[in-house]
Amino acid sequence: MKALGITVGGLPNLYSTGIRNRRLSVSFASTSPSGPKTVGVTAPKIEYKPGVLDNLFLNLFRNKLVQEVGWDSKKPGYDGLIEVANRLMMKGTTNSHTIEATVRILRSLFPPFLLELYKLLIAPLGGGKVAAVMVARVTALTCQWLMGPCKVNSVDLPDGTSCNSGVYVERCKYLEESKCVGICINTCKFPTQTFFKDHMGVPLLMEPNFADYSCQFRFGVLPPLPEDDAVVKEPCLEACPIASQRRMAAKNIGAIACPKT
């Protein structure tokens, strides 16, 4: 989400797509013929020790999230943040509502007019490369409290050149702790892409890997349309708590709706 004010970009025509009208519904069928996806959860976790500023960022983001949801978890720290994010996912009547709410949260993290000035004055420089490099570096510096260890790397741009406007997340803590594809794509990937493109003028493609929990940010690269994005076809994770509840309740009428659908 990714990300504390430094993690979101362009999702062209997001709300005119099928995602807009896709509502939460009771569904007992597997999201893929092979069933929920089993990921490399046996690999050791990559720990990141937060500093003073990291704790400030976490508390600020959590407070904004609580204001949007209207509810707070009793759990402290990151565990409580994940519970509030899950409540945000379940609160939205459609995925587009959840995405819109997350974008509002990200915008609220910035002082008035800062985003507009960045989009107007910085985003056009060097054909967009200057802004892309800047946000990549700031993301890597300020968002490890949310995502875990990450580093700036070189990515290929649409014009055929390469640029150090990528951020590689070794093992995303947000995905690993939430254990939910729906939370990843609807409270992180799509809203973050939308935020950066629409409100900072920097295109962003995020490529989460649900097999090893890594994620590649590509600032300066436009994402595909939602219906063409392979991520929306990803099956639920085997470890997803909501998916497991659905499987347990598959014979009951009152099964819990999956937030991914």
Rank of each mutant, 00 (worst) to 15 (best):
I122R: 10
K260P: 09
A132S: 12
C143M: 14
N21L: 02
T98P: 02
A140E: 15
G148L: 06
G18I: 08
G201Y: 05
D79S: 10
K64Y: 03
I82T: 07
K37C: 01
V84I: 15
T93A: 13
M89W: 08
S214W: 03
T17P: 00
N63E: 08
G201L: 05
N164P: 01
T98M: 04
Q144K: 15
L204V: 09
F195H: 05
D54L: 06
R247I: 15
G128A: 11
F28Y: 02
E116C: 12
G182M: 00
G51Q: 03
N153G: 07
F28C: 03
A140T: 06
S16I: 01
K233Q: 05
T161I: 01
L175G: 07
D198G: 10
I46K: 00
I99H: 09
L117D: 06
P33A: 06
R104P: 14
H199I: 01
K189C: 11
V167K: 04
S34E: 00
T161C: 03
C236H: 11
K260C: 08
P111R: 11
F190D: 08
I242S: 04
V133Y: 13
T194Y: 01
V133W: 14
G80S: 11
L109I: 11
K151Q: 12
G148N: 09
K197H: 10
H97K: 15
Y168P: 00
T187A: 07
A255E: 14
F190G: 06
P158F: 02
L56H: 08
T38R: 04
R107C: 07
P158N: 02
S108A: 10
D159E: 05
D198A: 11
F110K: 12
G148E: 02
P191L: 04
I19V: 13
L4C: 11
K2Y: 03
K251H: 13
L222F: 06
V133K: 15
K129V: 10
S16K: 05
T139W: 10
V167H: 02
F217V: 07
F28T: 09
A123I: 11
G182F: 02
C150N: 08
L117N: 04
G35Q: 06
E83R: 07
Y118A: 09
A140R: 11
A85E: 13
K251E: 10
M1H: 11
E177M: 02
L157S: 03
R104K: 14
L109W: 09
C188H: 05
P33V: 01
L24P: 02
V103D: 08
T261I: 15
E100N: 10
A29E: 06
L175A: 07
N13L: 00
F195T: 04
